[in-house]
Simulated scan of single mutants.
Amino acid sequence: MNSKSSIIKIAKQTIETESKAILNLSNLVNDDFASAVELIYKSKGRVIITGIGKSAIIASKIVATLNSTGTPSIFMHAADAIHGDLGLILEDDVVICISKSGNTPEIKVLVPLIKRSKNKMIAITGNTESFLGQHADFILNAFVEKEACPNNLAPTTSTTAQLVVGDALAVCLLNLRGFSSNDFAKYHPGGALGKKLYLRVEDISSVNQKPQVLASTNIKDIIIEISEKMLGVTAVVEDGKIIGIITDGDLRRMLSKVDDFSKLTAKDIMGYNPKRINSEAMAIDALELMEANGISQLLVEENGNYAGVVHLHDLIKEGII
C-alpha cells in the first residue's frame, strides 16, 4: 500500500506533467488558430463540436463555455452523427472535430461526410499529420508529449490540453465580440455568479421595510421602530434626507451609559454621516462597502433622498456571499 508521501509525490508529478504540456501549447498557436477564430467570428451559423470517448466530454464542456460567452454552439457525438445526427449541421455552421489521434474509425467516417456538405471544419488534435489533420480546413494543435497516466494510455494530459485550447478559442471570441460583464450576466441569470453581475441594491432594499424616525423622536418610539422593521437600524430623516442613523448597538451603548433616558431623542444618540449607497449600485458593491467598514447594513439613497436599508443578511440570503 502506498504511503501518504508517495501519494503526494504522484499527485505532484501528475500536475507538473500536465502543467508543462499546457505551457507548451502556447508555442503551438499559429496562423491556423487565428484563422479559425476569425472564421467562427464571421460565421452566420453556429459552432458544432464533435468528438468520441473522452474527447466528446471535452467537446461538451467547450460547447458550454462558448454558449455562455456569446458564441452559439451545439454538441454532436461523433458516433451519433454517423447514425442520423448529421442533420444538426446547417449550411452556415462551422464544425470542430476533437480527437487526440485524429485517426479513430468514427472520425474517419464522419470527416468525409462533413466535407461533402461543404461546411468549414476545424480540428483540435494532437496529431497534425492524422486523417483529421489532413482534411481539416484549420488545425488547432493540442499535441502533448505524454499522458500523466503512468502507462501513457488513459487520456489525462491530452484531454486537459484539448480543454485549454477550447478555452483559448472562447476567450479570443469573447474579446472580439466585446463581451462585457453585463453580457455575461444576461447568459448567467441564475446562481450567485449571475446575481453578482446583475442584482442591484434597489432589488433588495425595495422589498425591505423602511425604518425612519425624526431627530425629535423619543427613545421609546425609536425602539419600537427598530423592532418592528426588523433590520436592526433606523435612519434619522429630515425632509426626506438622511441626517443620521441609529442602530440597535447605539441603543445598547446608550442604556449602559445613561440612567434616565426618558427625555432623550434621536438627535441625542444618532450617528452622523452614516455609510450609504445609491439604489442603482450593484449589490456586490454594497457587500464590499460593508466589509471595508465592518458594518452589517447600509442606508440607501435614491436621487439624494432616503430610500431604505440593505442588510448583510439580505446579501447572504441572495447568495452574494
Rank of each mutant, 00 (worst) to 15 (best):
Phe131Lys: 06
Lys118Thr: 12
Thr157Ser: 15
Gly191Leu: 08
Thr156Ala: 10
Ile139Lys: 03
Val164Tyr: 02
Leu110Asp: 02
Glu106Arg: 00
Ser158Met: 04
Phe143Trp: 10
Lys146Ala: 13
Ile204Gly: 00
Ala142Ile: 03
Ile114Thr: 07
Ile139Arg: 00
Glu145Arg: 14
Val213Ile: 11
Lys195Thr: 14
Met121Trp: 04
Ala170Lys: 01
Arg200Gly: 07
Ile114Asp: 04
Glu202Pro: 01
Leu174Lys: 09
Gly190Pro: 09
Leu193Trp: 12
Ser205Gln: 08
Ile96Phe: 01
Leu153Gly: 07
Leu110Val: 05
Thr128Phe: 00
Gln209Phe: 09
Leu173Cys: 06
Asp167Trp: 07
His135Lys: 15
Thr125Pro: 00
Ala192Arg: 14
Ile107Lys: 02
Asn141Met: 11
Ala142Trp: 01
Met121Asn: 01
Asp92Val: 05
Lys196Ser: 13
Ile114Gly: 02
Lys186Ala: 14
Thr156Lys: 06
Asn151Glu: 12
Gln209Arg: 13
Ile107His: 03
Asp93Trp: 06
Ala192Gly: 15
Gln209Asp: 10
Tyr187Cys: 06
Arg177Gly: 05
Ala170Met: 03
Ala168Asp: 00
Leu163Cys: 03
Gln162Cys: 15
Ala215Trp: 02
Lys146Asn: 13
Asn151Cys: 07
Val164Arg: 01
Met121Thr: 05
Val201Ile: 09
Ser117Gln: 11
Lys100His: 15
Leu169Asn: 13
Leu199Val: 08
Tyr187Ser: 14
Asn119Ala: 08
Glu147Tyr: 11
Asn218Ser: 07
Asn119Glu: 06
Thr125Cys: 06
Gly190Phe: 11
Lys210Trp: 09
Phe143Leu: 06
Phe131Trp: 10
Ala142Cys: 08
Ile204Ala: 03
Asp167Cys: 11
Thr128Asp: 02
Pro150Phe: 12
Ala192Leu: 08
Thr157Ala: 14
Gln134Pro: 07
Ser180Asp: 10
Lys195Asp: 12
Leu176Cys: 13
Asn208Arg: 07
Ser180Glu: 09
Ala161Arg: 03
